[in-house]
Design a protein around this nucleic acid. Structure first.
Lengths: 245, 245
DNA sequence: AGGACAAAAAATGAATGCAAAATAGCTCGC
DNA sequence: GCGAGCTATTTTGCATTCATTTTTTGTCCT
């Protein structure tokens, strides 16, 4: 059987040797980054307890900085804090997911609107490149590649909005959804896939024309449709995904 | 006796008697709410240090829960945490304000869009009532009343969106801006005021027709114009506010 | 045997203690 | 008189400790 927390047996991680390139002076900041990733990547089951003690050992720290990080993650909506009963990975109901997708849709729509005001031709060209790359993945039925490129496109649009506040909020909500996305890959249906490609064409077109309101609408609808696909997938998960033999 | 708190001699604030109707089981939660209000209401100057020790005495608690609350407020963007140098009230640059207003504009646009899908006739009637009330304030040049009613209208639209996630995010960003709003009251100019009233008419009209995209556009633009007024006000603060010598 | 109650164990929430860093204060030199 | 350098105080960050609460375990009664 498989524990919710993979016991690596490893005597803790290097205190300062952070895996990525980012760095944090304070311990709680470092822990926050690592713990957030740990949760977002789905290392703890939905609704399962977040064991303070275990994590303290795992990170090689005391409870104080860990608990500080937990409070922040709770504020971000990744976990829940039950009084006197510890932290649990937040369970997203179908309604929660719908709400999250709608907020993401709104933020992307906003990003598109703002991007129209500031985006350069070079940036548009770059997005076009990504678009063709994604089309290639689509033709080759490369789900993973498609997904990644798709994400990069949306991130490029958000980046083009030139709004760090928006960027941060977007990343936050994306993290909450990603937790789910790890377990269930949406958009498996061919039909939806083709639709998504057409929508992306429309996005590019509106972007080229810097049609702010129109782009905002299209992006919103695009995410809305993603939402439907995702919810459908959760409702009837046996859709058509031929699991690897 | 019931308290392990070292008697500072100061009566401090009532431990459980919170001013509002909300309640929090845990101390850090309680402190978080109170400290957030304390900062949002502008009790600490922009960029000023947030004195841990002082606040601990003020709330009658130890540093642990206070520091947890500080971490959360930092995550919310209200304060900044400088490594080994304590917390400071976040100083919002003009650019930060622009970004915040744009995000608010996007969220309100989203709220309007979603509201069109779910709002009831009764809710619209209620908003119309508020609108007339606000119009009265406008005619009487009652800035404060106008502001409050205006806020209630926007909150009503957000509420009508039936999206708690959006509501929470909206409240968060609104808090960040409110901190500034306390010090500088925007929209002092008569012209902008009249414009805002007209925009509100258009908002109501679109809402009645459940014209989602249109309402989204109008709300975005409405906030965008508010943004301009605010920024203008900051740029030339000698507008008509007689600062104390 | 099954369930209820009680004691033990563990986990949580908050306070305190301690080392390191930063700020302030002070002396000394120019 | 003024500034550089050193020391002392304060402040921060984290670990540890203590009091409660929850959860588990064991026992007893029906």
């Amino acid at each position: 059987m498989k524990s919710t927390i993979p016991d690596t047996g490893v005597p803790i991680a290097p205190p300062a040797g952070n895996g990525g390139d980012r760095q944090e002076a304070s311990l709680h900041g470092e822990i926050l980054l690592r713990l957030r990733d740990y949760v977002v990547e789905g290392n703890i089951a939905e609704g399962a307890r977040v064991p303070e003690r275990r994590l303290c050992e795992m990170f090689g720290i005391s409870r104080t900085p860990l608990r500080e990080a937990l409070k922040v993650l709770a504020a971000e909506g990744l976990i829940e804090l039950l009084p006197n009963r510890g932290a649990r990975v937040r369970q997203l109901s179908q309604r929660d997911l719908e709400e999250l997708f709608d907020v993401m849709a709104g933020l992307e729509g906003l990003a598109g609107r703002l991007a129209c005001e500031a985006i350069t031709d070079e940036e548009i060209t770059a997005i076009e490149q990504l678009h063709y790359e994604m089309y290639g993945h689509y033709l080759h039925r490369d789900m993973h590649g498609y997904f990644q490129t798709n994400q990069r496109i949306h991130e490029s649009i958000v980046a083009a909005a030139r709004n760090e506040t928006l960027r941060t909020a977007y990343a936050n909500f994306a993290g909450r959804i990603r937790r789910v996305r790890y377990s269930a890959n949406f958009a498996r249906k061919r039909q939806r896939w083709a639709e998504a490609m057409r929508e992306h064409e429309a996005i590019l077109d509106a972007l080229r024309r810097r049609a702010a309101s129109e782009l905002s609408d299209i992006l919103f609808q695009h995410l809305r449709n993603k939402r439907s696909a995702a919810i459908d997938h959760l409702t009837e998960p046996q859709g058509e995904a031929p699991a690897s033999p």
